[in-house]
Amino acid sequence: MSVMHYLIVSSLLFSLGALGVLLRRNAIIVFMCVELMLNAANLAFVAFSRFHNDAAGAMMVFFVMCVAAAEAVVGLAIIIAMFRNKQTVNLSEFNLFKW
């Protein structure tokens, strides 16, 4: 298996995540799609790390995972706050910035 196969999987995952962020209305699912995009990037990182025999890429993945964990905490807290406000997490309902 060459690095190419990993990259194809990675880009598929990333596109899925991006589509989910743009199209889905449920805030939790949008949030999970963001995680999916992050992990697609992680996959590309480790693939290149292995390919180049360089640990730097693998190290980067740890940083991304740390940030993703922190983001999960904050993000879920925000979603809970949103739910408390409106009794829903449907993003179409949240349009306070509308003209």
Partner: peptide, 17 residues
């Protein structure tokens, strides 16, 4: 122009994308 400001965050994300 103000019609662009839908308030829906995903529209903005789409534009960024």
């Amino acid at each position: 122009l103000r019609r662009l400001q839908t308030g829906i965050i995903q529209n903005y994300a789409l534009l960024i994308w």
